[in-house]
């Protein structure tokens, strides 16, 4: 497996993702948004954080028209793994690969701070390596991470195991004090119907090295490695 890290104009987490993937032994390469390659079936496609197109119009609204998104759509449709982090999550929602939208934080301010996550699904390729009860310390950094969908969609996501992560306190309790942005039902990340596309606001690539404050984010990459043979 290799990781294809997509770079839109304004993306800034590409280098951090490549560094984090390297920490768990995954080779990564950049793909400029104007390219439209056919990704290898086993490749993990990463849409990193940043401000694609400066967040003009709406976060992710312009990036979804980039040629590379056709490749991402095709990869997802073929069952390939796609993870969108922060702005990548916003792009996946704009591209209708995931339901819902990311609204302005309830505080109306940008937030860069530590958060704690609990995995709600332990079967997806991204979360199956995370044992039940484990709390992951993974930071956020966004102004528009307030996940919103209508109640029917939220019920459906919950009923079908598609809520990947919720914000929690350090002890793993999901409550409003632990919600950093006003997200509906403390949702920090969701999966598509097949479970091969994950969007999340927190930055696992920043929690990748004890020197930088922790490495809980690596659990997600390691989950992915658990289902795809390295080097295949």
């Amino acid at each position: 497996m290799r990781a294809a890290v997509v770079v839109f104009p304004g993306t800034w987490s590409d280098g951090d993702c490549i560094y984090a993937l390297g920490r768990v032994g995954v080779e990564a390469y950049r793909v400029w948004h104007r390219e439209a390659p056919v990704f290898a079936p086993n490749d993990l496609v990463v849409l990193p954080g940043g401000f694609s197109y400066g967040d003009h119009l709406r976060c992710g609204a312009i990036a979804r028209f980039s040629p590379v998104m056709q490749s991402v759509q095709a990869h997802a449709a073929a069952g390939g793994l796609v993870i969108g982090i922060c702005n990548g999550f916003q792009i996946l929602c704009e591209a209708a690969l995931l339901p819902g939208v990311l609204m302005r934080n309830a505080s109306l301010q940008f937030r860069c701070m530590p958060t704690h996550l609990v995995a709600e699904n332990h079967a997806s390729p991204f979360t199956r390596g995370i044992v039940i009860g484990r709390v992951l310390a993974v930071p956020i950094s966004h102004g528009e991470g307030n996940y919103f969908a209508d109640a029917t969609t939220l019920d459906m996501l919950e009923a079908t195991g598609r809520v990947a992560f919720r914000y929690a306190d350090a002890a793993g309790r999901v409550n409003s004090e632990a919600n950093p942005n006003g997200a509906q039902r403390n949702i920090a990340g969701i999966l598509n119907e097949r479970g091969n596309v994950l969007g999340m606001m927190p930055h696992p690539e920043r929690a990748c090295d004890p020197l930088l404050g922790g490495e809980d984010g690596n659990a997600i990459w390691q989950s992915v490695l658990g289902v795809v043979t390295v080097g295949a």
Partner: peptide
């Protein structure tokens, strides 16, 4: 907390 102080993974 309103400033991204972590991006680039060097902090």
């Amino acid at each position: 907390r309103q400033y991204d102080h972590q991006v680039l993974n060097n902090t």
